[in-house]
């Protein structure tokens, strides 16, 4: 038969606080005294202690270390390489796109400019040697030379 006494809530509060701080002598004495007379608190404390012990025992510790995936490290390094490549592509891609657009614009401009002589014939400086398509060079006729003489 369990017996619940006055002071059980204080006992529970202190038994929880003992995890957080060092209890004073008076508080420790109260816990010991109450524990000796209150079966319900004793049982509750024992249950709590068992449950937490089982929880601690279920922790994974050193056994984890022996069974790593063989490519654990390699996978991280590979992902890091991929990540850094992606980041550099992401960083440089606006510049590449800009350069491509500029290049295309230059090409388009060159294509659109009409292909004609840059200067009209009247503007050519005197004495400039030039040759146009279809224009014949003067020929030297020997018969005409004799007549002149």
């Amino acid at each position: 038969m369990s017996v619940r006494l006055f002071g059980c809530s204080k006992y529970q509060r202190l038994s929880n606080e003992k995890f957080d701080r060092t209890l004073s002598l008076a508080e420790r004495e109260f816990l010991a005294k109450h524990r000796s007379v209150c079966s319900e608190c004793r049982m509750r404390e024992s249950q709590s202690s068992n449950a937490l012990n089982m929880l601690r025992m279920a922790a994974f510790d050193d056994e984890v270390q022996d069974s790593f995936e063989p490519q654990f490290e390699e996978r991280i390094l590979r992902k890091l390489r991929v990540q850094s490549t992606r980041e550099s592509v992401r960083y440089w891609s606006p510049a590449f796109v800009g350069a491509m657009i500029a290049g295309l614009a230059v090409l388009a401009t060159l294509q659109l400019v009409p292909n004609r002589p840059s200067l009209p014939s009247s503007n050519r400086p005197e004495g400039t040697a030039y040759r146009t398509r279809g224009e014949r060079l003067p020929t030297l006729d020997i018969n005409k030379l004799d007549r002149i003489r």
Binding site: N16, R44, Q47, S48, N50, A51, L52, L55
Partner: peptide
């Protein structure tokens, strides 16, 4: 958490 875990454990 301790209190709820204790109850679940019981």
């Amino acid at each position: 958490a301790r209190e709820r875990f204790r109850k679940l454990w019981i």
